[in-house]
Amino acid sequence: MEQLGQETLQHISQMFKVLGDPTRISILYLLKERELSVGNIAKELEMEQSAVSHQLKTLKNMQLVKSRRAGKTVYYSQDDSHVWGLLEQAIEHTLHQNCQP
């Protein structure tokens, strides 16, 4: 098997750093099956809109979420179903580990 290139390694490492934040995981979980506005996300997570916007910017820069404007409102959704697959496996792994005696 060939080695991964430095650029690929850096991107993977950066993605896991972004996914290493509980708030960003919570946002991605909320966006699992629906798109939401910043205000709706902030309400669901009981956070300030500015803090949610900051996290969404980080997720968008890594192409993990995408946005759509409708009038004055911007709606966010997951940009890549592969990322949800990673999160889903991590959730299942964690739940399975917590069920062990």
Rank of each mutant, 00 (worst) to 15 (best):
M1T: 13
M1Y: 11
M1L: 12
M1W: 09
E2D: 15
E2P: 15
Q3F: 15
L4V: 13
G5I: 11
E7T: 14
E7R: 14
E7V: 14
T8Y: 09
T8C: 12
L9P: 08
L9R: 14
Q10L: 15
Q10D: 15
H11F: 06
I12P: 09
I12Q: 11
M15A: 08
K17T: 07
G20C: 03
G20E: 01
D21I: 02
D21R: 01
D21V: 04
D21C: 03
T23L: 05
T23C: 00
R24A: 02
R24F: 01
I25E: 00
S26D: 12
L28K: 00
Y29R: 09
L30P: 05
L31Y: 01
K32M: 03
E33G: 05
E33Q: 08
R34L: 07
R34F: 02
R34H: 11
R34Q: 15
E35A: 10
S37I: 04
S37H: 05
S37N: 07
V38T: 14
K43N: 11
K43H: 10
K43P: 04
K43W: 10
E44L: 02
E44Y: 06
E46L: 10
M47G: 02
M47E: 09
M47D: 03
E48H: 11
S50L: 07
S50G: 06
S50R: 10
A51W: 12
V52H: 04
S53H: 08
S53T: 11
H54G: 02
Q55N: 13
Q55L: 03
Q55F: 00
L56I: 01
L56R: 00
K57H: 09
K57R: 14
T58N: 03
T58S: 12
L59R: 00
K60P: 00
M62A: 14
M62W: 02
Q63W: 07
Q63A: 13
Q63R: 10
L64V: 03
L64G: 02
K66I: 01
K66D: 00
S67W: 01
S67D: 07
R68L: 09
R69T: 01
G71T: 04
G71S: 08
G71N: 05
K72T: 08
T73K: 09
T73I: 13
Y75H: 05
Y75R: 07
Y75D: 03
Y76V: 02
Y76A: 05
S77L: 10
S77N: 11
S77C: 06
S77V: 01
Q78D: 02
D79N: 15
D79A: 15
D80R: 08
D80H: 03
D80M: 04
V83C: 12
V83G: 05
V83P: 08
V83D: 08
V83K: 06
L86Y: 08
L87K: 06
L87H: 07
Q89N: 08
Q89L: 10
Q89P: 02
I91P: 02
I91L: 08
E92F: 11
H93F: 15
H93C: 13
H93N: 14
T94M: 07
T94W: 04
T94F: 04
L95K: 15
H96R: 14
H96E: 14
H96G: 12
N98V: 07
C99S: 14
C99Q: 12
Q100M: 13
Q100I: 12
P101E: 09
P101D: 04
P101K: 06
P101Y: 09
